[in-house]
């Protein structure tokens, strides 16, 4: 019997690199939801037990032999979503920064017409669990991004997102960025006239372990991504 669109599972992709301490909890959090989900972890060449922990928790693990970066992991995720004929795709971080309970409202927004739904930490009044300079940096890049895609974006770097596969199909061949993909995907989506929607999410810090992104390198690469992709867009 053919399943209807609403019956079909949501494909959830979690890119992870050396997240053995957090990945199990993230997967368990998702499994507790009353939703039909297919959970995939894209293990981006981890040197710890991320793949084992993810597999033990019940996710399907797709493993890069070497560390390529979050952008490459997302491209692998998109390729699999297209290959598996998914309708809706959700991506979230493997470090526990994203609350699995908020997946439902992100998916709802996608089902209500959003081609790309971005979970924004700045849409709701809340204590932001991030350093002040990071807050300012994200707001600055989001402002720049809003100018480029000609629509209001408040959290351009958030990776808690839902995508319609049809929208992924349009931008997939144009994605190049191996590391800082958040901005690139937004730009390509904006370019393809996709409907981008933001929904509020909770701001949390990672569960355990340290972030792998140094602030200067992070800011430089965000700027580089914007310039390179803005130039490509123009």
């Amino acid at each position: 019997m053919t399943k209807t669109k609403s019956d079909r599972p949501i494909h959830v992709f979690i890119p992870a690199y050396n997240e053995e301490e957090n990945i199990g909890e993230v997967i368990k959090g998702l499994q507790q939801l009353q939703l039909s989900l297919k959970l995939y972890v894209i293990d981006d060449g981890s040197t710890d037990k991320t793949a084992e922990e993810a597999s033990k928790a019940g996710a399907t693990v797709i493993r890069h032999l070497v560390n390529l970066g979050g952008g490459a992991a997302i491209r692998t995720a998109f390729a699999l979503a297209l290959l598996n004929g998914a309708d809706n795709v959700v991506t979230l971080d493997g470090d526990g920064q994203h609350d699995p309970k908020e997946l439902q409202c992100i998916v709802e927004a996608a089902k209500n017409g959003g081609d790309l739904v971005v979970g924004s930490r700045f849409l709701r009044e809340q204590e932001l669990e991030m350093p002040f300079y990071r807050h300012i940096g994200i707001r600055f890049f989001s402002w720049l991004m809003s100018r480029l895609v000609a629509m209001r974006i408040t959290d351009a770097t958030s990776c808690y997102r839902a995508y319609k596969t049809a929208a992924i199909k349009r931008v997939f061949p144009k994605l190049r960025e191996n590391q800082y993909y958040g901005l690139e995907v937004l730009m390509r989506m904006g370019e393809s006239k996709a409907k981008i929607v933001e929904v509020p999410i909770t701001s949390k810090s990672r569960n355990k372990g340290k972030s792998k992104k140094g602030i200067i390198k992070y800011a430089y690469n965000l700027l580089r991504t914007l310039v390179e992709n803005g130039f490509h867009q123009s």
Partner: peptide, 29 residues
């Protein structure tokens, strides 16, 4: 090219594994 190669190997391994484990395969396209 290296990224493409690593991604293709990852997807190939996933498909091989899914072929051996029908539960892992997705529903009809």
């Amino acid at each position: 090219k290296l990224a493409e190669l690593a991604q293709n190997i990852a997807i190939h391994n996933y498909l091989e594994k899914a072929r051996g484990d029908p539960d892992d395969k997705d529903e009809e396209r």
